[in-house]
Design a protein around this nucleic acid. Structure first.
Lengths: 340, 340
DNA sequence: GATTAGCAGTCACATACCGCGAGTGCCAGT
DNA sequence: ACTGGCACTCGCGGTATGTGACTGCTAATC
């Protein structure tokens, strides 16, 4: 089997390769690190590692680079999750310190994460599922058009425009708003949805068809689990690391812009709720991201609503630093949004 | 001066070059188009155009490509703004047809625009400046934290989290909400802001410091002209057109992600309110986008609030098609959001 | 005067070739 | 188990060469 020293060799191969993007050879290893053995010995270890498919040679006479499997072993057993530097910690403070609304906080978080890791950063909107209805507001926009606003106690606001076939009388609107609020405030999302589904539990109205339209929209809104939205930043970083991809990065960028793909990927990684989970290289092949690695962590907002955030980049990335950054931002965000 | 035929030559040079990305020579012009003259004659015309700096040769013995000035002339006088194809019109219908909330509509618009033009698309959020206060809601999130929600009659919702030094008593909160609503509903944004600035126009409160904090936040909110937010889509298209840039596209992508830059650019292009305005190549140099062109058009939402949308791509782009697409989407969006 | 044919000249690009050097694998010796 | 030595491999950068697409110019033609 692979000896302790061999693993140590794997570690430095990963580290040096990540740092320099050059295949690393036995010579440079003994030069840069103090193993106390000769290059030939290192070569034997490398032969071993190659047999285990932890490293590979791009061509016959060149240094070695880690395989996906090698990275996996590194991440699982070898990476030291060193805490963030003071400067990085400082960056989090200044970026997220000031209060702002949810949209703004998430937008800042994603930029922050992308700057800390120099990768593409992703933040998923928190789920609404455990939130409760706090208030409902109906705002007339024009004769036949109104805005239905749903405010939840999780600090989320859901708005939608309703087109009416015919103008709705002002008093009806006011009455409807009052009844909706008294019927729904305090209910959880699922209860509210079923309450709205149960026909005219609000009693009879003059303009029933318009009212039905509005309640229908509202039912959509409480049902619409906006977890299916995510924000992204740092696409430029992908271009910077273009040389790490064999082909063009075009399909990668395409996959990233197709949020559905990422949301599925996030879903699959959800097992590990709070620690950082890592998906490496070909593990992401089903998503068209066979040459990228994705690091995510869950975070929780008010009321225990869960979502994930993370970074995406070429398999050749600084896992130690990036895992630490993802973890730190997730924790900070949980603290910022969560119940204290 | 440049003769009519010379201009015709310029037009086909632009069209062919945009279509093929190959410098176009006199031979290929007479082959592909029926000018009824020989290649030598075309060469004379091209010499003329070159003298006027409308076209240039990348190297001594090669075809010509349009200069920024050439594109400018093309856009101003030569481009035929052909209407969209049936398929494109259809795409707009299906993409924007279904009703949804403002966020959703803008998100779809930007994706649509990017698909129609195969370029990076940008949509700016509508200004709040002419909107009126419709409702104010204060939602407690925890003991010392609450969400302040501002709903305007333009269909925009502005939310913000307030951190309180000490818990706020429930009755005070309810009272505050009532007084705020009765004081502010119906006011324009600027009036509301000044009304909030004028000290305790709401009368005395028990927990004055907390109340001040809340009204302060609210003042921020009505003042915060969220025009400074924009959504983007289609970054992958920049990568696809990477060969059209001399250096890396990294700085371009960076400039794009730095929204401030784009907002300034949008601001400068605002002169022409509704037609499509075009900014070509070096005209964008101050923004670090010397090799890109930007097409924008204004659009209006409820209450005459103005914002802009547009596309950005390499100077070598299909101006005719893209201008038509920008105009069409802007119009559709105005119709969708505006008062009918 | 505008247009044309012909021709010499230019220059990017593709191809082939060559030498260098980093790095390996193996083997015999400690 | 480790080391020094050595033959071998192969990617990479640099140079030389041939090819072809174009142009610019000149002199002849409508």
């Amino acid at each position: 089997m692979v000896s302790d020293r061999s693993l140590e060799v794997l570690r430095v191969i990963v580290q040096d390769y990540v740092a320099s993007r050059e295949p690393v050879g036995s010579k440079s290893i003994v030069d840069r690190h103090s193993f106390g053995v000769s290059a030939a010995t290192i070569r034997n270890d490398m032969a071993l590692l190659e047999e285990e498919e932890l490293i590979a040679a791009p061509h016959t006479s060149s240094g070695r680079i880690p395989t996906d499997k090698g990275y996996r072993l590194f991440v699982d057993h070898l990476a030291d999750l060193r805490p963030l530097s003071a400067a990085q910690r400082q960056a989090i403070e200044t970026f997220l310190g000031q209060s702002a609304d949810l949209d703004e906080v998430l937008a800042r978080s994603v930029r922050l994460l992308s700057q800390l890791t120099h990768q593409v950063a992703l933040v998923q909107y928190p789920s609404l599922s455990r939130a409760k209805v706090r208030h409902i507001e109906l705002v007339p926009l024009s004769e036949t058009r109104l805005l239905s606003v749903l405010i939840t106690d999780a600090g989320r606001v859901e708005q939608r425009v309703v087109d009416l076939p015919r103008p709705l009388a002002e008093p009806v609107l006011i009455e409807l708003r009052a009844r909706l609020n008294s019927a729904l405030i305090g209910l959880g999302m699922t209860e509210a949805a079923s309450s709205l589904t149960g026909g005219s539990s609000l009693g009879p109205f003059e303009q029933q068809e318009a009212v039905d339209l509005i309640t229908g929209t509202l039912r959509d809104q409480v049902g619409a689990n906006r977890q299916d939205r995510l924000v992204m930043a740092g696409a430029a970083n992908l271009v910077r690391t273009e040389e790490d991809f064999t082909g063009s990065i075009y399909p990668v960028l395409e996959a990233i812009e197709e949020q559905v793909v990422l949301l599925r990927l996030f879903g699959e990684m959800a097992s590990d709720q709070h620690g950082v989970s890592v998906s490496i290289g070909r593990e992401n092949a089903p998503f068209g991201l066979a040459e990228t690695s994705v690091l995510t962590s869950g975070y929780s907002s008010q009321g225990g609503n869960l979502a994930r955030l993370g970074v995406l980049g070429p398999t050749r990335m600084d896992y130690s630093n990036n895992m630490a950054a993802v973890r730190a931002v997730a924790r900070y965000l949980s603290r910022l949004l969560g119940e204290n």
